[in-house]
């Protein structure tokens, strides 16, 4: 029942939200454009607040726009593949191929080669996978694709773990984070502080034409990077941070907030690089300390006490130092923080 004191309003009129189908055509946002490809359409089985579903939908629709619909997508095994396809309810409205966990980049190479052999230079290829399929099991194949400079845009949806199998650690899991295989117990709870596996910089080391990072907090930035990537030929890499409410222990309604905080704390630098050199970075508008990002996630709960105060100052300082390193490396604070 609608309270009398709550006026009935059109859903998020004037916002950039996905819906807006109730307002007049000329008032609708770009997201509800009837011309939109809806590459990943509704009815799939992603969790509420899934960052990967959002990221994939925007990335592929942007790629479809950039290629005038002449696109083939190759998917690694993982959440995105599983929640989108159980027969007969495939949510893909594009030519889509899933082979295995480790081989998406190689399959995409084959798709590109097969198209080239048939003279179909108009059709472009996107490969996509999670951070496990990218940084761990599919790493060698991806490096091979980069090294050969195959004409593929590879998109990594990074949610920092093997969420599909029940939230286990990957090489993209942040230090100190709790997962099912890095439990929050013992003298050093959560994931270890290693050197990490910085996929964008590893991609840049291959000197491929285009490398970029993005988050689902800034969808216009994400879309523009996909579109820009499609202006290049050769191997391209787009790394998108996609919060995972299930794996991170966060509210479904905090997905966008967390993606934004990842950027504004410096934990996830958003930048572009061409042929191995950084060409631009997205400045932090409101510089925020890392605990604001950490405390919204149960995977970091062991760093805080019951009142939400930092309990493990040393670890938080360590994480802050990593964020600061990113801020320095990518010059993310060009102005005084407000």
């Amino acid at each position: 029942m609608v309270s009398e004191r709550t006026p009935v309003r059109f859903y998020q009129v004037g916002s950039f939200a996905v819906g807006n189908r109730l307002v007049a055509l000329d008032q609708r946002s770009a997201q509800s454009d009837p011309e939109r490809a809806n590459s990943l359409t509704s009815g799939h089985r992603a969790c509420a607040g899934c960052g990967e579903a959002l990221g994939a939908r925007y990335a592929l629709d942007a790629a479809m726009r950039a290629t005038h619909g002449q696109l083939v997508a190759v998917n690694a095994t993982g959440c995105l593949e599983v929640f989108s396809t159980p027969y007969p309810e495939t949510s893909w409205r594009i030519a889509w191929l899933h082979s295995l966990f480790a081989n998406a980049s190689s399959v995409a190479t084959g798709v590109a080669a097969g198209l080239r052999a048939q003279g179909r230079s108009d059709v472009r290829v996107v490969a996509q996978g999670g951070d496990g399929g990218t940084a761990d099991i599919g790493f060698g194949a991806l490096s091979g694709m980069f090294e050969r400079n195959d004409d593929v845009l590879y998109i990594c949806y990074d949610n920092g773990g093997y969420m599909n199998t029940g939230v286990q650690r990957s090489s993209a899991t942040p230090p100190a984070a709790r997962t099912a295989t890095t439990q929050a117990v013992g003298p050093h709870p959560g994931n270890v502080f290693g050197q990490g596996k910085d996929m964008p910089r590893i991609a840049m080391a291959h000197e491929i034409p285009y490398v970029a990072t993005a988050t689902v907090a800034d969808l216009f930035d994400l879309e523009s990077k996909v579109e820009k990537a499609m202006t290049f030929h050769g191997a391209r890499f787009l790394h998108i941070l996609v919060p995972c409410p299930l794996g991170w222990g966060s509210l479904s309604s905090d997905t966008i907030r967390l993606a934004r905080l990842a950027h504004e704390t410096g934990i996830f630098p958003v930048f572009e690089a061409e042929h191995g050199e950084v060409t631009s970075s997205l400045p932090i508008r409101r510089h925020t300390p890392v605990e604001e990002y950490l405390k919204l996630q149960k995977r970091f709960a062991h760093l805080f006490d019951k009142n939400g105060e930092v309990k493990d100052a040393e670890t938080v300082a360590h994480l802050q130092a990593l964020a600061n390193r990113n801020i320095e490396r990518y010059a993310l604070l060009t102005e005084e923080p407000s």
Binding site: V74, S106, T109, A113, L115, A117, Q118, G140, E147, R148
Partner: peptide
Amino acid sequence: EHCEYINVDSEMAAMSVAIGASAVGA
């Protein structure tokens, strides 16, 4: 002619490239 020869990084990649190529009708 009209043949792409790909030097791949492993046998896993070799069969995977073949899978991708075959799936687009090559």
